[in-house]
Nucleic acid binder design. Structure first.
Lengths: 207, 207
DNA sequence: CCTCATAGAAAACGTTGAGTTCTCTAATGC
DNA sequence: GCATTAGAGAACTCAACGTTTTCTATGAGG
């Protein structure tokens, strides 16, 4: 805030390139954690990162692109799908991973960006790639394993069925805004996902 | 724009109450049709409606509330569920109704508002009510009729199953941003909705 | 080690739109 | 007819965007 008197800012050490990038990303995430996506401004990011707005705009055309990169930067690799040995266990594990991700700063950023893309069709294309497909792709692997195990019939696997679970989860997050309970996930799996793939929801000792 | 010289604006006729409201709503919809939700500003709405910003702010606290009311004002009553005699026909009819709605100005407004609610959790609650539940409520009626006809078993009707079709449709609209094809709707119905309610998708001559 | 092009920090600026406040007056209720 | 309410238009403040300018640290080439 108040700088020591006599210090000329232009004589301070300066970061460049990757180091500066990281500092900016960290500032973005801190701002989101503190004020949410709506409260994030370029000016405050710059101030927090002790960077100049000019530096921000040299790198990114606007807020959405900046947040997008900052989110990618902090994105864990959730394409790792634990093989629990049953379709039920696998789907639950995947959904829990995603709920966990959405419950943090990255999730807040993703949801804010989705909002952005809904209001501004221009910026939409790039944003929508983010986080799409991933979940369905993983579902495809998981169900593929179930087919290989003989747990379900290959003829039942269609694009819409693979999307059903993810769609219910996303809808819950988007429309309720509340954290998703584990009960909800189990209902989705037992009432929808397993029936769609012809798997009887045999009672299991928690996946 | 340029008014006839000599006309004093304060001597023009004035609208009040409902008449003014309608004019404002019409202006909101015209602006959305012209510039989309993102391009809508209070100033242009006021100008277009030949109203003052003060009048807008006396009625609504902000842009979101205004658009919300304008959308409600133009909202058709899609709770009327045509009874086509089959679950497949009923669900398809409902989905087609909704796709049609979303493809117009009201849809644009709804999507923009959803975007708003994702960025600004404060304004979210009221906005999220809008358009939620309606579709699931109608699904409940439709499936109820199918149960009454003996077309499907009452034991299969759960909340998550009722939500599955709507969730897939919403996800499509939200994440692709493109108009939803009728083929997609049929896939949703035949691959997901009917199987979930234990109805065999007997080939039908178009619902 | 010196020189120079690059890129960064800070600050100032122009612009836009939000939301408020003011004045004057038409509409409306009594 | 008279008083009250509410609207039109304009001026205003404020916040944030995005740009431009000035000065200088950084890092590369010679």
């Amino acid at each position: 805030m108040t700088r020591a008197p006599g210090t000329d800012h232009r004589t301070l050490p300066r970061r460049r390139g990757a180091a500066l990038n990281s500092a900016i990303f960290a500032a973005v995430r801190a701002e989101i954690a503190e004020s949410g996506y709506a409260g994030l401004t370029m000016e405050r990011v710059a101030e927090r990162a002790r960077a100049s707005k000019a530096s921000l705009y040299r790198r990114w055309p606007g807020r959405a692109a900046l947040v997008l990169d900052a989110a990618y930067d902090a994105m864990p690799d959730y394409s790792s799908t634990p093989d629990t040995g049953s379709l039920r266990g696998d789907v639950l594990a995947l959904m829990r991973q995603i709920v966990l991700l959405l419950d943090g700063v990255v999730g807040e950023a993703m949801i804010g960006l989705l909002g952005e893309s809904l209001q501004n069709p221009d910026a939409a294309a790039q944003i929508r790639e983010f986080g799409r497909g991933n979940m369905v792709r993983t579902m495809r692997e998981i169900v593929g394993r179930a087919v290989a195990r003989g747990e379900c019939d290959a003829g039942l696997v269609t694009e819409r069925r693979l999307e059903a679970g993810p769609a219910l989860l996303r809808q819950r997050v988007i429309f309720s805004g509340l954290p998703v309970s584990d009960d909800y996930l189990q209902e989705v799996v037992d009432d929808v996902v397993l029936p769609l793939f012809g798997v009887r929801p045999e009672v299991q000792p928690e996946g």
